[in-house]
Simulated assay, not measured.
Amino acid sequence: MEKRLINPWQWQDARGYVQAVEVKNVSGTLYCAGQAAVLPDGTSSDADMATQLQLAIGNLEQVIEEAGYEPAGIVRLTVYTTSHEEFLPCFPQLIEWVTRHGIKQATTLLEVKSLYETLKVELEATVVK
């Protein structure tokens, strides 16, 4: 697999993402459903945003690894949150995870009216290898 990062500017570097990722010679593509703070028994967490973000990251990582991929292969990440005011102070958690895995992904952050039940954040990813 070949990845080429497209960044006409530098300001996004501090925010942990790239403007675009071109991928060639892919041997597989994994489209992950949105992963949120859903516990192993299927119940939704009612914890604070930081805790829910950590759970969502853990769930996304588990899906990726069980499919035989690696988090470093994430090329697209969409973040849905019910409150950008609550989410933005937690954004460093996401950047730390992205940095730790060497992920270089195009990211979109969306504030939505609501998520299922008590959920506050959901992560949707496209992963390649």
Score class of each variant (00 low, 15 high):
1 M>W: 01
1 M>E: 06
2 E>A: 07
3 K>M: 13
6 I>V: 15
6 I>F: 11
7 N>E: 02
7 N>V: 07
7 N>Y: 02
9 W>V: 13
9 W>D: 07
9 W>L: 08
11 W>K: 05
12 Q>K: 07
13 D>C: 03
14 A>N: 03
14 A>R: 12
16 G>C: 06
18 V>F: 01
19 Q>E: 15
20 A>M: 03
21 V>Y: 00
21 V>Q: 07
23 V>T: 14
24 K>Y: 14
24 K>F: 13
24 K>H: 15
25 N>E: 11
25 N>K: 14
27 S>W: 08
27 S>E: 08
28 G>I: 06
29 T>L: 13
29 T>H: 01
30 L>G: 12
32 C>N: 06
33 A>S: 11
34 G>T: 04
36 A>T: 08
36 A>Q: 09
37 A>T: 02
37 A>C: 03
38 V>R: 07
38 V>C: 08
39 L>Q: 10
39 L>I: 05
39 L>K: 08
41 D>N: 15
43 T>D: 08
43 T>A: 09
43 T>N: 14
44 S>K: 15
44 S>T: 08
45 S>Y: 12
45 S>T: 04
46 D>N: 15
47 A>H: 10
47 A>E: 12
48 D>V: 12
50 A>M: 06
51 T>L: 04
53 L>C: 01
55 L>S: 00
56 A>F: 04
57 I>W: 00
59 N>E: 11
59 N>V: 02
59 N>T: 00
60 L>H: 02
62 Q>Y: 04
62 Q>H: 07
62 Q>R: 05
62 Q>I: 02
63 V>P: 13
65 E>K: 15
65 E>Q: 06
66 E>A: 14
67 A>N: 11
67 A>E: 09
68 G>I: 06
70 E>K: 08
70 E>R: 03
70 E>Y: 03
71 P>C: 08
71 P>G: 03
73 G>Q: 01
75 V>A: 03
75 V>S: 02
77 L>R: 07
77 L>K: 02
79 V>H: 06
80 Y>R: 06
81 T>D: 02
81 T>S: 01
81 T>I: 03
81 T>P: 00
82 T>S: 10
83 S>T: 08
83 S>M: 05
84 H>P: 10
84 H>Q: 14
87 F>P: 01
87 F>G: 01
88 L>F: 08
88 L>K: 11
89 P>D: 07
90 C>M: 12
90 C>H: 09
90 C>P: 11
90 C>I: 07
91 F>Y: 15
93 Q>W: 05
93 Q>V: 04
95 I>V: 13
95 I>K: 06
97 W>K: 00
97 W>Y: 15
99 T>S: 03
100 R>Q: 06
100 R>I: 00
102 G>Q: 08
102 G>Y: 03
102 G>M: 06
103 I>F: 04
103 I>H: 00
103 I>E: 05
103 I>Q: 00
105 Q>F: 15
108 T>L: 12
109 L>F: 10
110 L>M: 15
111 E>A: 13
111 E>I: 11
113 K>S: 11
113 K>M: 05
113 K>P: 07
115 L>M: 14
115 L>Q: 10
115 L>D: 14
117 E>R: 10
118 T>F: 15
118 T>H: 15
120 K>N: 09
120 K>D: 03
122 E>R: 09
122 E>L: 12
123 L>W: 12
126 T>G: 02
126 T>I: 15
126 T>M: 05
127 V>S: 07
127 V>K: 00
